[in-house]
Write a protein that binds this DNA or RNA. Structure first.
Lengths: 237, 237
DNA sequence: TCAAAAGTGTTCGCTATACACCCATGG
DNA sequence: CCATGGGTGTATAGCGAACACTTTTGA
């Protein structure tokens, strides 16, 4: 149905009607124990040279957008099978000054500790959400949408699983929920609720150096969570 | 940055790398007082000739996907400013047998009574959700995703506004929520909850011919709803 | 010894849930 | 006159929100 014709200038792919370019961008969220952070890369070329942006790239013709997003994520963090979710596709005609580009945007949830900030270390950096500078293209808008999508998703899935390390303190879990939902909980009510849900397993202590008293470490009880999820359970506050 | 070169065969738009086609499809939901329905159109050409599918079309280069979806919706229903939401972009490489096509999918909520099933009446039809036949392309999958997105959205926005006529009975409102969430509520508890929220205004009666007793008609109190929404209110069950 | 962090209750009010009663209407 | 649909009320259990007491430890 569609023919590709070579031309002399390397414009090899020809169509009867104009087609937009399609990219996949990835908003990578991490959690440092206190604040939510996003991984940004600094652009080395025009337009928006020097500005920070989300990692992304053109969609290949033989892979789905999700595969593309996973590939981007792997290149940037070394992670093979992270949690990613498509949350919006951005299509304003003028969003890229060069040509018509639509961007299928994903957000990823990763454990900062496991990220291999290897090759591209120089031009990649974690920013706390309230310290994100003005971004390239319409990426400010993409970030706002990603935050909103994450905030909604937390009502249906326990995104804490993906952002916290294997073991963590109750305080860290509370910090995470407060960071995502932008609210404050009473420490004791949060503890009671978690206890009632029976989703956490208590382990042995750790000394938290800078702090005053030892805090118990916990880990998620995945089996219990799956069971609750079956019954229509929702992790809400 | 991107040049378009004419060739002799009408393949006028040429690129250095292959670009996919981009379409916007629209899952149009309506409510008949008892069941949720979707508007489908029957395909007149191959592939999948004769199969039912969601209305859609190619994205134009000077309009956003949302504008395109609104245009499709207008052509199909005559409605100018319906409620639409982008919910997912479908990108499997093989989802269209002809060429690489990605589809930005929207769902719309409309009042069936207001739909002008004019021009395309012959090949357009409302299907109850449990009577939808096997669809063209991957539209079965698109429908499942649309239902899921609607079910989630109802927790954050009062989608009932968009699907019900100006006035309606409590029973109809309950039917709507039950249809979307696929659950059953106690008639009296549902009534009490609505009363407590003070979102409905009671009007004068109507005789429901086939039924036994007259039922009050209600309409939404938009002002009250907006006020509650400001305070972080959520319409949940 | 005192302030800060953390473990563990308790109380109260609201709301979801289950369930009951009455009225109107058509067959 | 009774079955069905519809309007309105009540009791109970459980959860969310506010709040108190104790222990540990570093300064």
């Amino acid at each position: 149905m569609e023919n590709n014709n070579k031309t002399e200038e390397g414009l090899r792919y020809c169509y009867k009607y104009p087609h937009p370019s399609v990219t996949t961008d990835c908003v990578i969220f991490g959690f440092d124990g206190t604040k939510l952070r996003v991984l940004l890369v600094q652009r080395g070329i025009e337009p928006y040279k020097g500005r920070w942006a989300f990692p992304g790239g053109f969609m290949k013709m033989d892979e789905s957008a999700e595969e593309g997003a996973l590939r981007e994520l792997q290149e940037e963090t070394g992670l093979e099978d992270a949690y990613i979710r498509q949350f919006h596709t951005f299509t304003s005609p003028q969003r890229d000054p060069r040509e018509r580009v639509i961007t299928i945007a994903y957000y990823a949830l990763v454990r900062i500790q496991e990220v291999n900030s290897g090759d591209d270390a120089a031009d990649a950096k974690w920013f706390a959400l309230n310290e994100v500078p003005q971004l390239a293209f319409d990426h400010d808008q993409i970030l706002r949408r990603a935050e909103q999508a994450l905030r909604q998703q937390i009502h249906f899935e326990p995104v804490g699983f993906e952002l916290l390390p294997e073991v963590f303190t109750i305080k860290e879990l509370q910090n995470l929920y407060e960071a995502i939902l932008d609210v404050r909980f009473d420490r004791r009510n949060f503890y009671n609720k978690m206890k009632r849900l029976e989703m956490l397993e208590q382990m042995d202590e750790t000394v938290n150096p800078t702090r005053k008293k030892e805090a118990f470490l916990f880990r998620f009880n995945k089996a219990k969570y799956e069971e609750l999820k079956q019954k229509g359970f929702r992790l809400e506050f």
